[in-house]
Design a protein around this nucleic acid. Sequence first.
DNA 1: GCTTAATCGGACCAAATTGTTCCGATTAAT
DNA 2: ATTAATCGGAACAATTTGGTCCGATTAAGC
Lengths: 157, 157
Amino acid sequence: MRLSNLADYAVVTMSAAARHCGGARSSAAELAAETGLPVPTVQKLVSKLSAAGLLRSTRGAGGGLQLARPAAAITLADIVEAVEGPIALTACLEGHDCIHDHDCRVRPHWPVVNAALRGALAGISLTRLSSPFASSEVERRISAGVSTSLDTNGVLV
Amino acid sequence: MRLSNLADYAVVTMSAAARHCGGARSSAAELAAETGLPVPTVQKLVSKLSAAGLLRSTRGAGGGLQLARPAAAITLADIVEAVEGPIALTACLEGHDCIHDHDCRVRPHWPVVNAALRGALAGISLTRLSSPFASSEVERRISAGVSTSLDTNGVLV
DNA sequence: GCTTAATCGGACCAAATTGTTCCGATTAAT
DNA sequence: ATTAATCGGAACAATTTGGTCCGATTAAGC
């Protein structure tokens, strides 16, 4: 039930990349310096994130990385899936047939849980993560039933 | 983003225990036979589940296990927390101060995500997991906006 | 058109958490 | 008091994860 460190780092890296929203290409080394993560780790991450279509990489001298989509169109679910694969709590749904019980009573219920989980993560966009507002403020507004969303600049609306 | 095997097995074990809802104490070996899990693994599980107050264990000859609460009052979140500890996607919230950046921009947003996640898991009760209905049926009713819940016998209401 | 320099992409190696197994302490019935 | 069956905790092995390195690719500069 815990995110892998890589996925955690991926979120931080994407958040840092989103701050370069001017469109300026930032290198992996630059992102590593901003986030405090080891350079090779960031290299491994941007590789996966690019393959998933979240980052666009430009190679060669003067190259670098930039967001492939607007920050508002990138969610936590996208980032997690890019690093960890499909969001599924159990392995019994993807090929690895559970040896134990082939008509397991709980197995048909996992898709519902997975969908609920993915929905929770898909509700958090990158703009919201880069928001200067503390989560407590956002949380208070949500629980108060106030319509809460952020524009592309991370401004609370 | 994946449940540990132990947590998965814990859900299966609790589901099996819920089927003995007549109040009959079932032994760990019995549960292992029903679920197809190794006996020592189940022993380790019931140990944690008892410590968390989800199962009540009676020692000695003729002893065994039974649910400490009605199945309707036990949720997936309870089981997961019993085995894996608090539901938190990142480790930076519990003591392990992130070495990298002490005013991390994404860190204040994790509590919201954690709460959303826990809410999704807390919405699935043990009665629903033991339901004879396939999840697709439940899911269809939910997405159709039909009020969907299950009584203590797992009957769709 | 060639050289140069800086980038990403993939493969190898080490560490840590997890999963399994075993044995001893405790308890109720006989 | 004895017996038998249970749970609880401790030690060991394995798979996944995290970190590091080097090579292939690419665009700019001359």
